[in-house]
C-alpha cells in the first residue's frame, strides 16, 4: 500500500482549510484543543508503521538505493548500500565514479570511516557517541529506550499536513524534534543537531513514499536538508532478516591496524 498517494490527496484537500485556519488563528492549534500526550503520539507512530511485534520480528535490514545531491550538489548521484542489524551494528557503503568509495560502520563499539579521500579513521568523542546512537536498530520503534523525556508542544502544518510536534530528549540529553501526522500517525519530518568532523550542524529529514515491507511501513524516499542544501535518498530495495556473512560488521583490516597501533603506542 502506498500511503504517499493518500497523503498527497489529503494535502490537496486540506491545504486550503489549513491556510484559512492559520490565517485566522495564526496557528493550527486552537486554544481550546487539548494536545495528546507525546507518549501516545509516539506509540501511535509505532502502531501505524506495523506495531512493536512486527518490529520485533526484524533482526536486520539491507537497503540499497541512490542519493541524489540535487541542484546544489551539481546533479551528482551516488549509489548507497546499508546493512543494519540489532542491536546497533551497521555498515554503509557509498560508491560513485566521480567521488570514489566511502565506507563507514560500527560493530557496536568501534565507530569507523574509510574513504579514498580521507583514509581510515576511528571516530572518537562526541562524533563517536552520536554515530553510535544513530546506529541503534529501529531506534524510533523503541523510542522509550532512546528518549528520557518526550513532550508534545503543538500542532504544526508540515507540507500541507497537520502534524503533532514532539520534542524528545535523548538519553544523552540532546534534543530531537519529530513531526507526526495527526491523521496517519506517520513521521513527516524530523530535526536534530548532528555531530561531525565539520562541527555541529542542524539537519532536517522528510521521510515519504511509505511502503510496507515484512509487516512494517518504511519510507522509500527521504528528503534531507542540511545547511540549506537539499538531498534526496531513494531506496530501490529493502530486505529484512537477510542471512548476512559472519564478518559483515567486522572491522576492516585498515581500522584494526589503527587500533593495534594505538594499543601499541599506549604500552
Amino acid at each position: 500500500m502506498k500511503l504517499n498517494k493518500r497523503l498527497k490527496r489529503l494535502s490537496h484537500v486540506m491545504f486550503s482549510m489549513i491556510f484559512l485556519t492559520a490565517a485566522v488563528t495564526g496557528s493550527l492549534f486552537s486554544a481550546d484543543e487539548v494536545l495528546p500526550e507525546a507518549e501516545k503520539i509516539l506509540d501511535g507512530y509505532v502502531d501505524a508503521t506495523g506495531g512493536l511485534a512486527a518490529y520485533d520480528r526484524i533482526q536486520n535490514r539491507v537497503t540499497k538505493g541512490t542519493l541524489d545531491l540535487g541542484a546544489t550538489g551539481m546533479g551528482i548521484k551516488l549509489s548507497i548500500t546499508s546493512y543494519n542489524a540489532r542491536p546497533d551494528r551497521s555498515y554503509n557503503l557509498i560508491e560513485s565514479d566521480a567521488l570514489g568509495k566511502m565506507e563507514n560502520g560500527t560493530d557496536g563499539s568501534v565507530v569507523w570511516e574509510n574513504s579514498t579521500m580521507q583514509g581510515a579513521q576511528v571516530k572518537e568523542g562526541k562524533e563517536r557517541a552520536f554515530l553510535l546512537k544513530m546506529s541503534t536498530f529501529d531506534r524510533m520503534a523503541y523510542w522509550r529506550k532512546a528518549f528520557k523525556k518526550v513532550e508534545c508542544t503543538g500542532l504544526e502544518d508540515i507540507e500541507g499536513l497537520p502534524c503533532y510536534k514532539v520534542v524528545a530528549t535523548a538519553v544523552d540529553g540532546e534534543p530531537e524534534t519529530y513531526w507526526i501526522d495527526k491523521e496517519t500517525n506517520l513521521l513527516i519530518k524530523s530535526e536534530m543537531s548532528m555531530e561531525s568532523q565539520m562541527g555541529t550542524v542542524k539537519a532536517q529529514m522528510f521521510p515519504g513514499d511509505y511502503e510496507k515491507f515484512d509487516g512494517i511501513l518504511v519510507p522509500k524516499s527521504v528528503k534531507i536538508i542540511v545547511m540549506g542544501m537539499e538531498r534526496t535518498a531513494t531506496m530501490t530495495s529493502i530486505e529484512h532478516n537477510v542471512k548476512l556473512p559472519e564478518d559483515r560488521f567486522a572491522l576492516p583490516p585498515e581500522i584494526q591496524a589503527l587500533l593495534d597501533k594505538k594499543k601499541a603506542e599506549k604500552k
Binding site: G73, M194, M198, P219, M235
Partner: peptide, 17 residues
C-alpha cells in the same frame, strides 16, 4: 528511521570550490 544519518554527514563534505 530507515535512512542512516551517517550518510548526511558525508553529504556535508560534498560541496565544491
Amino acid at each position: 528511521m530507515i535512512v542512516n544519518r551517517r550518510f548526511i554527514i558525508i553529504l556535508l563534505m560534498i560541496c565544491l570550490v
